[in-house]
Simulated scan of single mutants.
Amino acid sequence: MLNVLLLATILLPIVTSIVELAKRTVNIKKNLIPMIAVVLSILIATVAYPFTDLNLVMRLWAGLFAGLASTGLFEITKYREGFTKGDK
Protein backbone atom coordinates (compact mmCIF):
# COMPACT_ATOMS: atom_id res chain seq x y z
CA MET A 1 0.00 0.00 0.00
CA LEU A 2 2.91 2.32 0.67
CA ASN A 3 4.04 1.98 -2.95
CA VAL A 4 0.53 2.85 -4.19
CA LEU A 5 0.53 6.04 -2.14
CA LEU A 6 4.05 6.86 -3.30
CA LEU A 7 3.04 6.50 -6.96
CA ALA A 8 -0.10 8.59 -6.33
CA THR A 9 2.07 11.28 -4.72
CA ILE A 10 4.31 11.35 -7.78
CA LEU A 11 1.36 11.46 -10.18
CA LEU A 12 -0.50 14.20 -8.30
CA PRO A 13 1.48 17.27 -9.46
CA ILE A 14 1.76 15.88 -12.98
CA VAL A 15 -1.99 15.39 -13.34
CA THR A 16 -2.80 18.70 -11.67
CA SER A 17 -0.54 20.63 -14.01
CA ILE A 18 -1.82 18.86 -17.15
CA VAL A 19 -5.46 19.47 -16.20
CA GLU A 20 -4.71 23.11 -15.38
CA LEU A 21 -2.96 23.51 -18.73
CA ALA A 22 -5.93 21.97 -20.51
CA LYS A 23 -8.34 24.28 -18.69
CA ARG A 24 -6.39 27.34 -19.74
CA THR A 25 -6.02 26.33 -23.39
CA VAL A 26 -9.26 24.46 -24.24
CA ASN A 27 -12.83 25.45 -23.43
CA ILE A 28 -13.99 22.69 -21.04
CA LYS A 29 -17.19 22.49 -19.03
CA LYS A 30 -16.44 22.91 -15.34
CA ASN A 31 -18.36 19.81 -14.31
CA LEU A 32 -16.18 17.60 -16.57
CA ILE A 33 -12.87 18.63 -15.03
CA PRO A 34 -12.91 16.09 -12.14
CA MET A 35 -13.72 13.26 -14.57
CA ILE A 36 -10.93 14.37 -16.90
CA ALA A 37 -8.48 14.43 -13.99
CA VAL A 38 -9.41 10.92 -12.86
CA VAL A 39 -9.30 9.42 -16.36
CA LEU A 40 -6.01 11.14 -17.16
CA SER A 41 -4.38 9.98 -13.94
CA ILE A 42 -5.53 6.39 -14.47
CA LEU A 43 -4.10 6.46 -18.00
CA ILE A 44 -0.78 7.84 -16.80
CA ALA A 45 -0.62 5.28 -13.99
CA THR A 46 -1.36 2.49 -16.47
CA VAL A 47 1.58 3.37 -18.68
CA ALA A 48 3.92 3.87 -15.71
CA TYR A 49 4.90 0.19 -15.66
CA PRO A 50 8.60 0.76 -16.53
CA PHE A 51 9.00 2.98 -13.46
CA THR A 52 7.41 0.78 -10.81
CA ASP A 53 7.10 -2.87 -9.90
CA LEU A 54 3.41 -2.55 -8.96
CA ASN A 55 0.94 -4.73 -10.77
CA LEU A 56 -1.77 -3.21 -12.94
CA VAL A 57 -4.50 -3.16 -10.29
CA MET A 58 -2.29 -1.28 -7.83
CA ARG A 59 -1.27 1.24 -10.50
CA LEU A 60 -4.95 1.80 -11.33
CA TRP A 61 -5.68 2.47 -7.66
CA ALA A 62 -2.77 4.91 -7.50
CA GLY A 63 -4.11 6.68 -10.58
CA LEU A 64 -7.58 6.90 -9.05
CA PHE A 65 -6.17 8.36 -5.82
CA ALA A 66 -4.07 10.87 -7.74
CA GLY A 67 -6.99 11.98 -9.91
CA LEU A 68 -9.29 12.48 -6.96
CA ALA A 69 -6.59 14.26 -4.99
CA SER A 70 -5.71 16.60 -7.85
CA THR A 71 -9.33 17.64 -8.20
CA GLY A 72 -9.69 18.11 -4.47
CA LEU A 73 -6.47 20.07 -4.27
CA PHE A 74 -7.74 22.52 -6.88
CA GLU A 75 -11.17 22.84 -5.29
CA ILE A 76 -9.68 23.63 -1.87
CA THR A 77 -7.67 26.54 -3.25
CA LYS A 78 -10.54 27.99 -5.31
CA TYR A 79 -12.50 30.84 -3.74
CA ARG A 80 -16.25 30.88 -4.28
CA GLU A 81 -18.89 33.25 -3.05
CA GLY A 82 -22.52 32.56 -2.23
CA PHE A 83 -24.49 29.59 -1.07
CA THR A 84 -25.43 26.40 -2.86
CA LYS A 85 -29.15 26.95 -2.40
CA GLY A 86 -29.14 30.62 -3.39
CA ASP A 87 -28.80 33.79 -1.34
CA LYS A 88 -30.27 33.81 2.15
Rank of each mutant, 00 (worst) to 15 (best):
M1N: 12
M1R: 13
V4H: 10
V4Q: 10
V4W: 08
L5Q: 01
L5P: 01
L5R: 01
L7M: 09
L7I: 05
A8L: 07
A8C: 09
A8Q: 07
T9M: 08
T9R: 00
T9P: 00
T9N: 03
I10M: 07
I10H: 04
I10Q: 06
L11H: 12
L11K: 13
L11I: 13
L12W: 08
L12M: 10
P13H: 04
I14L: 11
I14D: 00
V15F: 02
T16D: 10
T16C: 09
T16L: 13
T16I: 05
S17E: 10
I18W: 02
V19G: 03
A22S: 09
A22Q: 04
K23I: 09
K23L: 08
R24V: 02
R24C: 01
R24W: 02
V26C: 06
V26M: 12
N27W: 05
N27R: 14
I28C: 06
K29L: 07
K30M: 11
N31Q: 12
N31R: 12
L32C: 08
L32Q: 11
P34M: 01
P34H: 00
M35S: 11
M35K: 02
M35Y: 11
I36H: 11
I36S: 12
I36D: 11
A37Y: 10
A37I: 07
A37T: 12
S41Y: 05
L43R: 02
I44Q: 08
I44A: 13
I44P: 02
A45E: 00
A45T: 01
A45F: 03
V47P: 02
V47F: 14
V47E: 05
A48P: 01
A48D: 05
Y49P: 00
P50N: 00
P50G: 02
T52S: 11
D53H: 07
N55S: 14
N55Y: 14
V57Y: 15
R59A: 04
R59V: 06
W61A: 15
W61T: 15
W61Q: 10
A62Y: 07
A62Q: 03
G63Y: 02
G63T: 06
L64G: 13
L64R: 08
F65L: 15
F65M: 13
F65R: 06
F65G: 04
A66D: 14
A66Q: 12
G67H: 06
G67E: 01
G67V: 05
T71D: 15
T71L: 05
I76W: 13
I76Q: 11
T77D: 06
K78C: 03
K78S: 07
Y79R: 12
R80D: 04
R80T: 10
E81C: 00
K85Q: 10
K85W: 04
G86N: 08
G86Q: 03
D87L: 00
D87A: 06
D87P: 01
D87Q: 00
K88L: 09
K88F: 11
